[in-house]
Design a protein around this nucleic acid. Sequence first.
DNA 1: TCAATATATGAATAACTGTTCATATATTAG
DNA 2: CTAATATATGAACAGTTATTCATATATTGA
Lengths: 116, 116
Amino acid sequence: MKACNHEEEHARAAEQAVRNMPDEESIARVAASFKAISEPSRLKILFALRHGEMCVYHIVEAVGGTQSAVSHQLRLLKAAGIVKARRDGQNIAYSLADGHVVAVLELACAHLHCKI
Amino acid sequence: MKACNHEEEHARAAEQAVRNMPDEESIARVAASFKAISEPSRLKILFALRHGEMCVYHIVEAVGGTQSAVSHQLRLLKAAGIVKARRDGQNIAYSLADGHVVAVLELACAHLHCKI
DNA sequence: TCAATATATGAATAACTGTTCATATATTAG
DNA sequence: CTAATATATGAACAGTTATTCATATATTGA
């Protein structure tokens, strides 16, 4: 494999890329965040929580599926810092962790030219 | 499973969630987009391409790994509409599909409080 | 046309992940 | 304390996916 005829520009970009490449741990964390929101079942939960805090009962109502599956998904989302949980009596109320979540969803939809 | 004592607010949120839930196909497309950028090896490619168009040779130089692995990853990224490709003689020059890609990466990093 | 180079790709394997089922924990009402 | 309810969780299975290896395709120069 040898260089292309854009050698200079591409080589400069490659150099900059190496110099500015985030460390492995940062990349792993970013990857984990996107992985958490890359499954339809979990995305549905996020789209649902856009409309406000909900306990598991209502999340199940909103997105369908079994209570167990939803609970497992919520655990992953919480571990990834995408949603936060708050106990309220017998219930656990879930909500989006911060405004970045909706912002990212909206960017993705804009990218795909689909309205949400 | 019965409703919680936030019945009214949560029930309203759940109703709105059901009414505004994107269709299955939109959700699948959003999920596929995030899945494409949820692997460290592919994220490295995107972080690299922030610095400009590059051919495969230079991408391999910037992110490491084998040519074959990088090529497979590029195929997925292209299929997902995250990067675009342009033939240039013997080389194929890759670049980010649009500004949304960098914007999403920056949002994720802001969310995680890590600088890139 | 032939050799060299850049990139792509099919198959195989190993690792990962989502769902289900059964069960556990925690909270409240009585 | 006991029963009922809400949520969480461990194990197992099925489906998915990233990497490697070998090879194919495409472009260029001679």
